[in-house]
Computed example of a mutant assay.
Amino acid sequence: MSRRSPPPSPPPQRFANPQSLSDWLEPRLPSDSFAAWGVKPGTKNVHNLWLELSDGETSITDSTPPVRAVSVVTVRVIGKNGNILVEGRQELSDGSVRERFRPLSEKMKPDETPEEAVFRAVKEELGSIFSGEDDVVQRVKILPGSYSRRVEEKNSMSYPGLPARYALHSVDATVRGLPEEDFCTEENECDGETVEETRAAGKAVTVKRHHWKWVSPGSVRA
């Protein structure tokens, strides 16, 4: 599990801004699907995809349609009674709600190990439940022997019409101090590293609030 995830292949060209990416995508995707990006509830827009590419979280193939490739870490957080923590739904910045019912998950950064991604995912998505400057990493224990990896290909719910290839890294873990009842957390936001990234972040559809609940292991989606 300590092996670093190979970085995504670089995009077929460098996209200077979201508009250049949009111009490249438009002739390669079904027009009705592309038009739904950021309009259909629960979807993201081209600013989101451009930020993913700029951050190295995603690569995209030069094909018709293109294929979005991304590495994701999934953390099955196990509670005291053996139940699994799932994200029931997300409140988005455009006012829509996206149903999830999935364990904690996060896109991996370039050269990031699964362990590093687990700690970052817990800190970013669950960290607001802990008060003060608490070191969230100290609360996380990854269960030995729980790591697995698989590749899954499916149509993206976030970007209609854009097929996706996911390298899924999964672990079981415990997180000390989580509420035993349903709870919600605020998304930790950060500014872009460049002016263009900051502008794109302001126009992207972002998660404002996560709603979590404990469910029986048998009810969790694979």
Rank of each mutant, 00 (worst) to 15 (best):
T174I: 12
S105V: 03
G38Q: 06
S128V: 01
V175K: 02
A35G: 05
T61C: 06
V171P: 12
S22K: 15
S96T: 15
S20D: 13
G202M: 04
R176P: 02
H169W: 08
R76W: 12
L178E: 07
P10N: 04
A16S: 11
S146E: 10
K40M: 15
W24R: 03
S31N: 13
E52I: 00
K208E: 15
S63T: 07
R100G: 00
R199K: 13
N45A: 05
E152A: 08
L25C: 07
C184K: 13
V70T: 11
W212R: 02
D135C: 05
V86R: 09
G145R: 01
D94N: 14
A222Y: 12
A16P: 03
E57M: 02
P12C: 07
H211E: 02
S156Q: 12
G177Q: 09
P30S: 10
W37C: 03
V39H: 09
P217M: 00
N48V: 08
K213S: 05
N45I: 05
W37H: 02
R98L: 13
V46P: 11
E91G: 12
P144R: 01
V86I: 15
A167Y: 12
G145V: 02
V75W: 03
P103D: 06
V73Y: 03
A222C: 10
K44V: 07
T198N: 09
S219F: 08
T194V: 03
P163I: 06
E91P: 05
F183P: 04
P114H: 02
A222E: 15
W214K: 07
P217S: 01
P110S: 01
E125G: 01
T58Y: 07
N48F: 03
K80P: 08
G79T: 04
E125H: 11
E186I: 11
E186D: 14
E57K: 08
V207M: 06
D172L: 09
V220K: 11
A167I: 13
G132D: 05
E181W: 07
R149I: 07
S219N: 12
I78Y: 02
K213T: 08
P12T: 09
L85R: 10
P163A: 02
L143C: 06
L104P: 08
G79V: 00
S105F: 13
Q19W: 09
P160D: 05
P179N: 05
E193L: 09
V140I: 11
F183K: 01
